[in-house]
Amino acid sequence: MPTVHTKVEPQIGAVACLSRDHPNTTFRMLGNHPVDDGTVFVLLEAPDLPGEDVTTYFEGDDDVIEYEIIHDAETAVFVRIRIPLPAPHRAGISSGSVPHAALTVRNGWIHGEMTTSMERIQEFVSALREADVRYEVASLTQSDETGAILTERQQTVVETAVEHGYYETPRSCTLEDLADVLDVHRSTAGDVLNRAEGRIITSFVRDSS
């Protein structure tokens, strides 16, 4: 099955500012717990930063309903944050796709990976677009016993197609639009896409049988 690596802009202003102010630090969002009133508790790990430095970002932030430092040590600070259910979280729920590991936050972006079907990836990206969430598709790969099934060029074209809404319903861009973005002829873009889609579908069917 395909694995997509996405970069999504944080919906918590404090987290975005914190990571941008410390661009060389990788923060981790270790888990979340939705509650009945439409809010969610998020556990954030902030390594190598004093607790008092971290809390200054959350004080007075309208995106944060409440926060609590639950562990403060020399190696890491853990913050429990309660916020309204973020749009990317809703997009994941609506598309039936969830990250298969803890999310990481680096330099103003939340990084996550999901292994799911192409259809669910398209639904997830479409939901992000509808919610006006800034995002990037960093990579889209599918591996079998011999490694990645797409060539580097095929992967680039497919990632560009996903990013620009080619696989959305209805489509946000045509094959001609995609060819213009890639600066290639329409027939070239179509040929590369057809070969890539054929490899993905063949591998998916083989893995499912």
Rank of each mutant, 00 (worst) to 15 (best):
P2V: 03
T6P: 02
K7N: 08
V8I: 15
Q11E: 14
Q11L: 00
G13S: 13
V15L: 09
V15P: 03
A16G: 12
A16S: 11
A16H: 12
R20Y: 05
R28Y: 04
R28F: 00
M29Q: 15
L30S: 12
H33W: 11
V35P: 07
D36N: 12
D37Y: 08
G38S: 02
F41N: 09
V42T: 07
L43G: 09
L43K: 12
L43N: 13
E45F: 10
E45C: 13
E45M: 14
D48I: 01
P50W: 10
E52R: 15
T55A: 08
E59W: 01
D61E: 11
D61H: 10
D63E: 02
D63M: 01
I65L: 14
I65C: 08
Y67M: 12
E68Y: 12
I69Q: 10
I70G: 08
I70D: 03
D72R: 07
T75A: 11
A76T: 06
F78H: 11
F78T: 02
I81Y: 11
I81T: 08
R82S: 02
R82I: 03
I83F: 11
P86I: 01
H89E: 12
R90P: 01
R90N: 05
R90W: 03
G96V: 06
P99Q: 13
H100C: 09
H100F: 15
T104P: 05
V105E: 05
V105H: 05
N107P: 11
G108T: 07
H111L: 03
T116A: 07
S117A: 11
M118R: 13
R120Y: 04
R120W: 02
I121R: 06
E123R: 13
V125M: 10
S126M: 00
A127L: 05
R129G: 12
E130T: 13
A131F: 05
D132A: 12
D132S: 15
A138K: 03
A138E: 11
L140I: 08
D144L: 09
E145R: 12
T146M: 01
G147M: 04
I149P: 10
L150Q: 07
L150T: 06
R153F: 00
Q154D: 07
Q155P: 06
Q155S: 15
V157C: 02
T160V: 01
A161R: 04
V162Q: 07
G165T: 08
Y167C: 04
Y167G: 08
E168F: 10
P170I: 02
R171L: 02
R171G: 09
L178V: 08
L178D: 11
A179L: 02
V181Y: 11
D183N: 14
T188L: 07
T188S: 06
A189Y: 12
L193Q: 07
R195M: 05
A196F: 05
E197G: 02
E197T: 10
E197M: 06
R199A: 03
R199D: 00
I200F: 04
I201A: 09
T202W: 06
T202K: 11
F204I: 00
V205C: 05
V205W: 10
S208Y: 08
